[in-house]
Nucleic acid binder design. Structure first.
Length: 306
DNA sequence: GATACGTGGTG
DNA sequence: TCACCAAGTAT
């Protein structure tokens, strides 16, 4: 964390902008619950808010408390998760609900360390729950915030790579002492990164802090390094896992491993490819079992708890 | 520190 | 079209 001290006026201007344009997500309602906030944050991990909103409504309508969700089955949780992605989050969230019931009397703990110890809760989510559900003055740093601070404060085109200690220190340097105001700054910085200071095509003319942006002031210098490329999804094991899990979601009874290829519509491949793909899909099925998303019984595989 | 982990929006 | 990117976490 080198370079100039951050400009505190940034904070006021981002908060003022956020108060005007904030998107009215239900987990921002005054009547929100800490559980609702926690669910929204887990659903939002690597997932755009626009995709989260409809699923979140269904989810918290069905399971309004940690105790309610703890009583569900993993299979129900995975089906409710639908196509949000990273379905392991659904299982982790259910384990999290169980731990909240067992260790915290059914109440989401207002404590960063306690939250961090829960399944599926990392540094970002723990901080987000403390700030947004409980109004604690803690820094919340996601990919948007890293990018906003990299540009506005450090004059760099792209964010530094995630680093919990550095992330917290960078944001703490700007954090208002008042918890409610800190939450506005945390959420405002994220919103700015999501709506204006975007990765690919930033809308600088609309930016509330364009006059204070070091990146703009320096003439928008290009990134000095290129981020790692995301692996191709098409043809990946990730894609195969997704297809196998989709079949299991559709079949409460599970599927015979011998029928997996047929069930997945692989039958029209030429024989060599069929064999290879069948083997890979079986491996994907095994990895789902290893990850606790599915279970095997003899020659059948099904969703956990189905 | 690097890698695996889903699915869909965006330019 | 297609590569990039997304309110990260666990190992």
């Amino acid at each position: 964390m080198t370079g100039r001290a951050p400009d505190p006026a940034l904070v006021d201007e981002v908060i003022a902008w956020f108060d005007e344009v904030r998107r009215p997500f239900p987990w921002r309602d005054p009547d929100r619950t800490a559980w609702g906030v926690l669910v929204s944050e887990v659903m939002s991990q690597q997932t755009q808010m626009s995709r989260v909103e409809p699923k979140w409504r269904e989810f918290v309508d069905r399971w309004p408390t940690p105790a309610a969700f703890a009583a569900a089955s993993d299979a129900e949780a995975i089906r409710a998760w639908d196509r949000l992605g990273y379905p392991r989050r659904a299982v982790a969230l259910r384990r999290c609900a169980e731990a909240i019931v067992a260790e915290h009397g059914g109440e989401v703990p207002a404590d960063p360390e306690a939250l961090l110890a829960l399944p599926g809760i990392g540094p970002y989510t723990a901080a987000a729950v403390c700030s947004f559900a409980f109004g604690m003055p803690v820094p919340v740093v996601d990919t948007n915030v890293r990018r906003v601070l990299a540009r506005a404060v450090h004059g760099e085109a792209i964010a530094w790579s995630p680093n919990p200690r550095r992330d917290a220190a960078e944001m703490a340097a700007l954090l208002p002492a008042d918890g409610e105001r800190a939450a506005e700054w945390n959420a405002g910085a994220m919103e700015l990164g999501a709506l204006v200071c975007t990765a690919r095509a930033p809308r600088c003319p609309e930016c509330p802090i364009r006059g204070r942006c070091e990146w703009r002031g320096a003439g928008f210098p290009a990134a000095e390094r290129t981020p790692r490329r995301q692996p191709r999804f098409e043809g990946s094991d990730r894609q195969r896992r997704g297809r196998v899990l989709a079949a299991l979601r559709a079949d409460p009874g599970g599927v015979e491993l011998d029928r997996l290829a047929e069930r997945l519509g692989l039958a029209r491949l030429v024989p060599d490819e069929l064999d290879a793909e069948t083997a890979r899909h079986r491996a994907a099925a095994d990895s789902l079992v290893a990850d606790g998303l599915a279970e095997r019984e003899g020659g059948r595989i099904r969703l956990v708890g189905d």
